[in-house]
Design a protein around this nucleic acid. Structure first.
Length: 276
DNA sequence: AGCTCATGGCGAG
DNA sequence: TCGCCCTGAGCTG
C-alpha cells in the first residue's frame, strides 16, 4: 500500500473522521492491546504524515506511530464486527466509522520527543510544505551511490518508494546508475519539483499516475494497461512491454534490493537527464 | 492447498 | 548483502 502519498492521504482521512472526537480503540489481535486499553475512550486530536511514517495523536501527549511497511494496510469502513479479528492489530472507531490496521511493520505508542526524533531522522518530504529541498540536494550531491538507490533513501527523499523512483527517473531521461555526485543541480531541481507535483496528485487521486497525455496508450495506439496499484505508469512493473515513448522493451534489474524498471533507450547509460 | 510476490525497512554478518 | 517480519492477492497445482 505505501508510498508517501498513501500515508498523507491516511493522515488526512484520520483527522477528518476522528480529529477532536472521543474514540474507541481496540486491538482484537492482542499485539497492541496494552496501548489500546490506554487510549480507549480518549480524544483523538489529529494525524500527521512524515514520509512513510504516520502519527496519530491522542489527548495527553500519546502518539501512535505507524509504519505500514510493504504489506500493511489501514482501511476505513462502517463500524461493524471485524471480518478476521486474528489479523486486526488496531481499530479506531467513532460515530459509526472505523479504521482498521493490519500487517503494519510497526505500530507503537510513543511520546512527542520520540516522534520528534523520527522526524529529525527523516529527510525532506516532497508532500510537506516545510520540506527543505536543499538538504536533499546536499546529501545527494555528496554521494557516489547511483541516483536509483538514492531516490529510495528516506533520509534524502522521504516518502518516495519504488514506483515514484522508477517513474521520475524515466520522466527525466536519467540513467538510474548515474552517481548522485554527477547529477547536475538543474536535474535535481527537476526531479524534486516533479516529485512535489506527482505525489500531490497521488494524494488527491489515491493512485500513482505519471503518463503525460501525449504518451498514453490511446495516444500511442496501444492497448491500455493499468497496473494493479491502480495508476497508469511508464515503466513500473512493465518489464518487456514496449516503452510508451519509444517502443523499446522496458528493462528490469535489481537496485537497492528492489526491482528497478527503466527504458534503455530513453535512459541510456550515462544519460545525465534534465528537464524534458 | 501451496507458492511467490508486493508501493518497506530492520538487524546480523 | 542477505534473511526476516507483517498480510493478502494472484498465480500454480
Amino acid at each position: 500500500m505505501p508510498e508517501g502519498h498513501v500515508t498523507h492521504r491516511l493522515a488526512r482521512t484520520l483527522t477528518a473522521d476522528f480529529g477532536g472526537r472521543r474514540v474507541r480503540v481496540s486491538s482484537p489481535q492482542g499485539r497492541f492491546a496494552d496501548a489500546a486499553a490506554l487510549l480507549d475512550g480518549t480524544v483523538c486530536e489529529r494525524a500527521e504524515a512524515i514520509g512513510k511514517h504516520l502519527f496519530i495523536e491522542f489527548a495527553g501527549g500519546r502518539i501512535v506511530w505507524i509504519h505500514l511497511g510493504l504489506i500493511g494496510k489501514l482501511q476505513f469502513g462502517p463500524d461493524e464486527p471485524p471480518a478476521s479479528p486474528g489479523t486486526l492489530r488496531l481499530r479506531i472507531a467513532a460515530d459509526g466509522v472505523r479504521a482498521d490496521l493490519r500487517g503494519p511493520q510497526w505500530c507503537r505508542l510513543i511520546t512527542a520527543d520520540e516522534r520528534d526524533a523520527v522526524a529529525a531522522a527523516s529527510g525532506p518530504d516532497p508532500l510537506r510544505a516545510d520540506a527543505d529541498a536543499e538538504l536533499a540536494w546536499a546529501r545527494l550531491h555528496r554521494s557516489r551511490k547511483p541516483i536509483g538507490a538514492l531516490l529510495m533513501e528516506q533520509s534524502i527523499f522521504a516518502g518516495v518508494g519504488n514506483i515514484y523512483r522508477a517513474e521520475v527517473l524515466f520522466r527525466h531521461g536519467i540513467d538510474p546508475l548515474l552517481p548522485g555526485a554527477e547529477l547536475g543541480r538543474a536535474t535535481f531541481d527537476s526531479i524534486w519539483s516533479d516529485l512535489v507535483t506527482l505525489m500531490a496528485l497521488g494524494v488527491r487521486d489515491a493512485r500513482i499516475d505519471t503518463v503525460e497525455p501525449d504518451h498514453t496508450p490511446e495516444a500511442m495506439g496501444r492497448a491500455p494497461r493499468v497496473d494493479r496499484h491502480g495508476g497508469e505508469v511508464y515503466v513500473y512493473r512493465r518489464a518487456g512491454d514496449p516503452c510508451l515513448r519509444c517502443g523499446t522493451p522496458v528493462a528490469r534489474a535489481e537496485l537497492a534490493g528492489r526491482h528497478l524498471y527503466w527504458c534503455p533507450e530513453c535512459q541510456p547509460a550515462g544519460a545525465p537527464g534534465g528537464p524534458r
